[in-house]
Computed example of a mutant assay.
Amino acid sequence: MTIHHGQQQWDARNYDRSMSFVSGFGQEAVQWLNPQAGERIIDWGCGTGDLSAKIAESGAKIHGIDFSQEMIQEAMTKYPHLSFEQADGQHWSTIEPADAIFSNAALHWMKDAPSTARAMANALRPDGRLVAEFGGKGNVASISTALKDVMTAHGWYEESMNPWYFPSIGEYASLIEQVGFRVMQAIHFDRPTILQDGEQGMENWLDTFAGSYLNHLTKEQRTIVVQEVIEQTRPQCMEDGQWVVDYCRIRIYAVRNG
């Protein structure tokens, strides 16, 4: 079963198997969150629930939301003692405001950033905190440039295919300040990321994350694009037989004004 977000599809088990670095790198953001026993915390874009489970070890009451029903089903299977819900983080609301919101590697998929920011502010109690890490300006630029170049050369590219929102710190801080947050700390850092699966790493990455580009194509066209993107990115991203992708992340700590 696959779930569409626009044209993006998710295979939850393959995601866990080949892209486990996503939740692995999120451990530092959990430290920024510093969850406390009894707190109500929303995991905004929880994926298959690994970091929700980590947060729950503190004794916090965690509720994970994600747009992908398959991701949520996998999270419920792995962590049946925790609370998960299929929901669109761009518009989700709750009756009971939370003490904190945590989000890892999710906000850059929510292209309606103003609505997402408002939804998060509305879901927090006054003085509640937001800790998020996501793709910042320049994230995976080698791949996104190659996708655009290759597909444009074949006449297959449309700007609407781009599924990502990668802001600068200034852009994002300004956005959430407008909806009532006070930004306490923010960093924008490079994090070169080794892909798993050796030579197949880039192809697996494209299959997992570039569906909004590739799923518009026929099987033959898709094969052409994947192979040409691999060759265009190889000089920049292949090091000693491993794919190393130019990830750039924003990590931010903000508090909702009282």
Rank of each mutant, 00 (worst) to 15 (best):
Q221V: 00
I230P: 02
L130E: 00
Q86W: 03
G201S: 06
K219C: 13
H5L: 15
W164T: 03
F25P: 01
D190S: 15
P35L: 04
I176W: 07
H81D: 13
V183Q: 01
N34I: 05
G198H: 09
A132I: 08
E228W: 07
Y15D: 05
A254S: 03
E220V: 09
I224T: 13
G24V: 02
R125M: 13
N257Q: 12
A60Q: 03
A56P: 09
G135F: 08
A56N: 09
I65N: 02
A29L: 10
R191K: 14
W44R: 04
T223S: 14
E228V: 02
A141V: 05
G138R: 02
D246E: 02
N14Y: 11
Q31L: 12
H108I: 00
T208H: 00
F102L: 01
E228D: 14
L175A: 00
A186T: 10
A173Q: 15
D99C: 04
A105V: 03
S115H: 08
V226P: 03
I65G: 02
E199K: 14
G26S: 15
E158N: 13
S160R: 15
D207Q: 14
N34L: 05
Q90C: 00
E133K: 06
E199M: 11
E159V: 11
W243P: 05
C46H: 02
G201R: 04
